[in-house]
Design a protein around this nucleic acid. Structure first.
Lengths: 260, 260
DNA sequence: GAGTGGTCTAGACCACCTC
DNA sequence: AGGTGGTCTAGACCACTCT
């Protein structure tokens, strides 16, 4: 199949300088707004667009790239939501200072570690099937006579213990014990056709119990970062509830908040 | 307004019943998509739309309300981003189970407490002007010869100590000492025309120092929930950097993650 | 007044899921 | 095959900010 590549070289216009080069592939299945957002993000991360720079305005950019305004707008909005750009009505769009970060996405710890080249490993501490505790039944929206699988795992990165994770899943969708030793939980669920779409997290802290301290190579009562998470699939049903404890000395959460 | 109810004898398939009544005020300055989003959200919270219910499809809703599809779509998308609805291509839109929560918005602790009727009070522990430490200069993107105001406050709720907060601001925009005793920091900044638009937060945990323990009525080494936050205004400039420590026994963060 | 982003319309075609 | 959401177009009018 033919593939059309459009290459635009922007003239330098507004105030500073807009060296934004964008290649859009209109035959690709990747949405145009996404292609454009990626290109702009790359320009920012590469330093072609410096923090504080004024950004080419919507109409001009749309015209230059032969895109409609809504499509261009959506690409820009994507980056505003990511915290890389800021817009002010009547003024313009600017690159945020210090745009070095990535926000917390809906990813698993396992994937995060693997992507960072941290060599994640998992030890299965417990795997049992039975009726849910009251809290678990409430979080998963299950009747008390349904069966759930309880999983307790120790996650290490580069051989160092990092977190103790307890998870509860309806028995119908729970992965096998062996699978959990080699893959992340979400990875296993994905392979079974369960797509996590949304999660609610409560992040807190507490002191380590004696057992937790031993597992994590910390002293009893050492500060732990805790996360309780309920995850929902693409039909809105709760599919997983978990209590995780991280060594505070080796882990933190990074989030970005945007006012819209 | 007319309301059509469809009754099926067999299995209830399509959305069963959509009692969604919406009144739109086209002369209001409030955007239509926002009015609609609010109405839907109210229906969910009131239980008119139950968890798991299928939602009326975009096209039908748009036609019924005499709105364009993009406007209708945007309202729905708003609620998807909030974690109240889930969409699946080719299938439809459904209400998420257990939609009881509010997500972390870009708000200040002071405002949150006040809204929850928790009677916040602030004690100013320190207020001084001088050159920034290296970390602060880096976070605020300031030269080392610029002056910053360092603020240290104890925040209580209902008379109980809750958090120790250390903040750094460029001297030009810093509120007075007196102002900080009666208002929140963000409230004071807003009054000075500074609009926080974006914040990056790192959430972790550690043990309390002796001084912190004393201020917070905890034992030394008690677990504290920590947040380091850099805030940016609507021109993308860093305006505030803060280190906050919360009593883990009395505070946690609640977040929602959505896969888009 | 000029320029910017914010909202809105009325269509179109496509990809995906279920029947 | 029919219905759903996902993407895209080519305009329009308005509100806000800066000069």
């Amino acid at each position: 199949m033919l593939r059309f590549l459009y290459r635009f070289q922007g003239k330098l216009e507004i105030g500073a300088d807009v060296p934004l080069t964008v290649e859009l592939d209109r035959s690709s299945p990747v949405p145009l707004y996404y292609q454009l957002a990626q290109a702009i993000e790359a320009s920012i991360r590469d330093g072609e667009l410096a923090p504080g720079d004024r950004f080419e305005n919507e109409l001009a950019l749309a015209k230059r790239l032969s895109l409609s305004r809504p499509t261009t707008r959506r690409a820009i909005q994507e980056l505003v939501d990511k915290g890389l750009l800021v817009r002010k009505r009547g003024v313009g769009t600017q690159v945020v200072q210090n745009p070095v970060h990535r926000r917390v996405e809906l990813t698993s710890l396992f994937d995060d570690l693997a992507r960072a080249g941290q060599e994640p490993t998992t030890t299965l501490l417990e795997y049992q099937v039975g009726p849910p505790e009251e809290e678990v039944a409430r979080e998963l929206n299950l009747a008390l006579d349904r069966e759930v699988v309880s999983i307790r795992r120790l996650r290490c990165a580069n051989g160092e213990p990092l977190a103790v994770m307890t998870n509860y899943l309806p028995v119908e969708i729970a992965p096998d014990a062996e699978e959990l030793e080699s893959n992340g939980l979400y990875q296993s669920l994905r392979a079974r056709g369960v797509h996590i779409r949304l999660a609610r997290q409560r992040i807190g802290a507490r002191g380590a119990s004696r057992a937790e301290a031993q597992l994590l190579d910390e002293k009893p009562n050492a500060p732990l970062l805790t996360m309780a998470r309920t995850a929902f699939d693409d039909s809105g049903a709760a599919v997983e509830f978990g209590n995780h404890c991280y060594r505070a000395s080796r882990y933190y959460f990074d989030t970005t908040l945007v006012d819209r």
